[in-house]
Design a protein around this nucleic acid. Structure first.
Lengths: 196, 196
DNA sequence: CAGAACATGTTTACGATGTCAACATGTCGT
DNA sequence: ACGACATGTTGACATCGTAAACATGTTCTG
């Protein structure tokens, strides 16, 4: 209604999220996002340094969506081992359900993924779910329950994340049912590596 | 010298390879490759369906380069276990030495990676080294040596590849020496998963 | 050996994108 | 009320992918 949109940035990011969902990072374009929000393209540049900065925000959304998916899958179980496995499986399922989102989630600066694991926990509030946080939490549960030994605990995030993330990348675009055994095989491998 | 270049396609791919090395997939552009070869942009379209097809070829080169790196690292050792570990480590090292090439190697259609593992071995000749082939071979050595049990052998490619590929993705752009322990940790995890 | 079919390059051109500069229009503090 | 500031708009430019239409060698046939 008004000349000024009110909160353009979130609206643009939301539009970008939809674009990512449909066509992956490549189709996350400033112009198209602006178009969908009903605003001129340069307007976006009042809120984002450049396209990379915009995509980074969209990617953040994608990661949050992934985290939410993992959390709901995890919370369907009680035992730490089942919760762990459900978390990992959810990650891979996400690769099939939302290939565009997953691709976008980690393509921009892969450093995000690592940083998320390395130590960054302070940058995400309660309303900013983080996939790495979910993983770390469930690993802590396993540790607390004595399933993972104290000796094995350090670096467990990496082992789990690398396997699952790598598998998700490899399986992107393949047949879902054909991949099912592969998924279980890798999850078995992760468990064997961490406790087993 | 002549109006006709002679073998444009390979020249363009070589140029694309250099571009990938410097700036990753994003900077692999048909126009720039043509420019560097000293030819007009549309000329490239006599040899490649579209940009994706071109990038796919460049990616193939990148994968071959990776395979060569893995092979030379592997061949520095005799024992199957050491050869296996050297292969994996080389993959990760490649992520640090040639981030652009690694990104390009698997971004276009991740299906390549999976297909490479799934069954594709016939499409690569002796002069067309394949990273998946290298991995499979060294796993076969481990199996033959009795290090990997027959029960564990099936799907071992996936476990190894997913972990290492995922780790390489996660570590892209991080500090090399800081990441060293993480690398060993994940490699330990892979070994624990496959034989341990 | 001439010339036609073919492969391979070239020039031109169009539409889409990222992004800058200049201008317009609201909002808000004094 | 008025002027600073934030936020949008229009217009323009460079780069890209890529389609015609045209030019130039190469090669095969009569």
């Amino acid at each position: 209604m008004s000349y000024h949109h009110g909160n353009l940035a979130p609206a643009l990011v939301a539009a970008g999220f939809t674009l990512a969902r449909q066509g992956g990072t490549a189709s996350v374009t400033v112009r198209e996002a602006a178009r969908r929000v009903g605003v001129s393209a340069p307007a976006a540049y009042r809120h984002f340094e450049d396209r990379d900065a915009f995509v980074a925000q969209v990617a953040r959304c994608c990661r949050q969506e992934l985290a939410r998916t993992m959390m709901t899958a995890r919370d369907r179980h009680r035992s730490p081992k089942r919760r762990f496995r459900a978390t990992g499986r959810a990650y891979i399922e996400f690769a099939f359900d939302e290939p565009g989102l997953l691709e976008c989630a980690f393509t921009p600066h892969q450093a995000h993924a690592w940083n998320a694991i390395a130590g960054a926990t302070e940058e995400c509030a309660a309303d900013d779910p983080d996939a790495a946080r979910v993983l770390i939490d469930v690993l802590d549960e396993l540790h607390a329950a004595g399933v993972i030994s104290t000796a094995q605990r350090p670096g467990a995030e990496l082992v789990a994340w690398a396997s699952v993330h790598g598998l998700a990348m490899l399986l992107a675009g393949t047949d879902r049912v054909a991949a099912a055994p592969a998924i279980e095989r890798v999850l078995d491998g992760v468990e064997a590596a961490l406790f087993g």
